[in-house]
Amino acid sequence: MLHGLCCDVVYIFDTELHARINTRSVIRRHFAKVRFTFSIIDGQGGSDRDVKARIGKARGALVMLKKIWSSKEISQRTKLRIFNSNVKSVLLYGCETWRTTETMLGKIQIFVNTCLRRILNIRWTDRIRNEDLWQRADQKPAAQQILRRKWGWIGHTLKKPASSITRQALKWNPQGKRKRGRPRNSWRRDTEAEINRQGKTWSQIERAAQDRVGWRIVVDGLCSPGGS
């Protein structure tokens, strides 16, 4: 099933004064006919197919901009900004509603690390810890970024009127009998587990979302390395 939330890719046009490659024209030329506006949700609520498609589209975006990554006239800082706006935005589109697993997060992080090593010109023979790589690129772990975007979206949704279908969907409980055996993990179960680890209830989360400052504190606690 295709989830048709529309989201345009954000572009950064930042050209070095003496660059031989016109960053702006390269991005425009390669992205003029490309759209990344759909999420794939399978019948069981899983996100594996969508993540696989996201990685494929992000890899395509990375290849389209290969002249920028190999340019010696464009600073690494500018390259990283272009990566965040034109590759990572494609990769993480719709991640707020992903049902994540350790395997899925690992695949996403491996792809991001591969991109960062290419942009920073770090060869495979050069050993570097992931933490050092992220620090050099001013990046957070993918799992932490996905979690923060998820809770940012939840907070935005909880500010909507109680009659909003989107808000009602957060608490919707499908009716009917389920198959025997251990129930599948779900986005909702993951969310409830994250709330429980913070010693909070859903009612407390709903109230906190109405206060911008209070909600920021809640999200920081939920998304801190030790909080999730």
Rank of each mutant, 00 (worst) to 15 (best):
A61I: 01
R129Q: 14
P174N: 11
G43P: 00
N130I: 07
K88G: 02
K67Y: 11
L5T: 13
N86G: 10
E194I: 13
V219A: 12
P174L: 13
N173F: 07
R59Y: 04
S163Y: 03
K33S: 15
N113S: 15
A193F: 03
R24W: 02
R59S: 14
K33N: 15
D42F: 01
M1L: 12
A32P: 01
L158S: 05
R184N: 10
E73K: 09
K179Q: 13
K79T: 02
L17D: 12
I154N: 01
Y11I: 04
T125W: 12
K67H: 14
D48K: 03
V34Y: 10
K159E: 07
R178K: 10
F111N: 00
R123E: 10
G155L: 04
N121Q: 15
T15L: 06
N196T: 11
S85W: 06
E131F: 05
V213T: 15
L222V: 14
K88E: 11
Q168T: 03
T125A: 10
T157H: 03
T37C: 09
T125E: 14
T103M: 09
Q109V: 06
Q135C: 14
A193R: 10
Q139K: 01
I12D: 04
G106W: 01
E206Y: 01
S186D: 06
G181F: 05
Q76P: 06
C6W: 09
G214W: 08
W151D: 02
G46L: 05
S186N: 05
I12T: 13
V218C: 03
R99M: 07
I12H: 08
R149D: 09
F13I: 04
R117H: 09
H30V: 13
S89F: 07
F36S: 08
K160C: 05
K66H: 15
R77H: 09
E16A: 15
Q44C: 08
R20H: 12
K79P: 02
L17Q: 12
N173R: 12
M1I: 10
S89G: 07
G152F: 00
K177S: 14
W69K: 07
I146E: 02
R136A: 13
I122P: 00
R180C: 06
G94W: 00
R184I: 05
I195N: 03
W187A: 06
T103S: 14
L147W: 02
D14W: 12
T125Q: 11
E194M: 14
H18Q: 13
R180L: 11
I21P: 00
D132H: 13
I108A: 02
I122K: 04
A208L: 11
D48P: 00
Q145M: 15
N185F: 04
Q76A: 09
R24G: 05
R54T: 01
I74L: 13
F31W: 04
V218A: 01
V213C: 08
K79Y: 05
W124A: 08
N130V: 11
R123F: 05
Q198H: 07
A137K: 00
R184F: 07
R180M: 06
